[in-house]
Design a binder for these strands. Structure first.
Lengths: 203, 203
DNA sequence: CCCAATTTGGACTTGACAGTCCAGTTGTGG
DNA sequence: CCACAACTGGACTGTCAAGTCCAAATTGGG
């Protein structure tokens, strides 16, 4: 099993990007186990050699796709993540996620979270990558809450880290219920509860 | 593809049970995609014919296993589920789940919830079975909260259905974070927040 | 006890998929 | 413009898993 190569030419970079992009879509559509390398080949027109030139093996590709997926999620939420230091900013963030689920007709759940159940027990590397991705996400909220505490908007005994974790749990759980029940209100309800809990720490 | 047969003799019933039991273990250990029928055969000593005699195909077996898994979860939580009509009862339930994760070293997550991300998009029948299972679980809490409201322990404007849903979201999200981060405190934190939210509806 | 239904063993077919390999093509720095 | 590295096409192998099929064994009701 040859090692993965970093593309050296513009053409190579483009190929690698195309593969990653298609693999990310397929992973979201068909799940980790459902995505085959032949699927990726079909969607990109790439040959086997290309896949194995840029990625050591299937697992290597999956790990790379996880990172790309995290980037995509954080990118999509964009500026919203920089303003999680006010109640209004947090509400906008919550509303955005609910709206997103409505548009997607409650399909797919969280691109990161739903990989967790699929890979956490079978692929340690993937588990680590997912954990790292969730951490990057949660950090935005934790930092925002910390700033609020500094500005006296949160009580002195508030624990931004715990508040952020509990909120992430509500997000992930709400998305899971939304996905299983095909009902975006599940996320709305979960986020309302998360909001209530955050508010308890308000001054 | 021959249809599934209901066992007619004691021996047949025993075989079907053995298969279901082993398949349930394997599903929890290796995930939905990771479990092969050969794995089930190896663990039970059953032959191919036996599998296909009692189950129409792989999907049929998986659906049956989901039901069995839900029964196992509800069974394990046993009486606790009958006393979700007091703060103390709810706390005991929460504590039990956290303790269970500690004992399992934060591995495996929720046997039901982690199947959601694996099957919700690829197997509609499984999605329905999982939704039904979660509903059975949530119903215990919703019923308990409803009794509390009747007894005046919850405010008149409290919505037991929404409270139960939000709590389930915290449970599932807390378990997901616990699994990914290999840290049972994630569930503890999520459940503390869920408790705070429930308490807001107290009289 | 006997016969029909139930249950079981296991060979076989088919297809999918990961990964290897090498020859051929394309790009690029000197 | 050439030599070498980067890149690509695609045939090939090995493995594993799902599902089919039929004959043999077992069981239980009459």
């Amino acid at each position: 099993m040859g090692n993965a190569h970093v593309p050296a030419t513009a053409k190579g970079r483009a190929t690698r990007e195309r593969i990653l992009q298609a693999a990310a879509e397929l992973l979201a559509e068909k799940g980790a186990a459902g995505m085959s390398l032949d699927d990726v080949r079909a969607r990109t027109g790439a040959s086997r050699s290309q896949l194995y030139h840029y990625f050591a093996d299937r697992d290597d590709l999956v790990h790379a796709v996880i990172d790309v997926t995290v980037d995509a999620v954080l990118g999509r939420q964009g500026e919203l993540l920089d303003h999680l230091d006010s109640w209004a900013g947090i509400d906008r963030w919550f509303d955005f996620m609910v709206q997103h689920q409505i548009e997607r007709q409650a399909r797919g759940g969280c691109p990161i979270g739903s990989l967790a159940g699929q890979l956490a027990e079978s692929d340690p590397g993937a588990r680590a990558a997912i954990a790292a991705g969730l951490e990057r996400w949660e950090a935005h909220l934790r930092d925002g809450l910390t700033r609020m505490k500094t500005r006296g908007k949160l009580r002195n005994d508030a624990d931004p880290a715990a508040l952020a974790s509990a909120t992430m749990a509500s997000i992930q759980g709400g998305l899971l219920l939304t996905q299983v029940r095909r009902d975006p209100n599940q996320l709305r309800t979960a986020l309302n509860a998360a909001r209530n809990n955050l508010r308890l720490a308000a001054t």
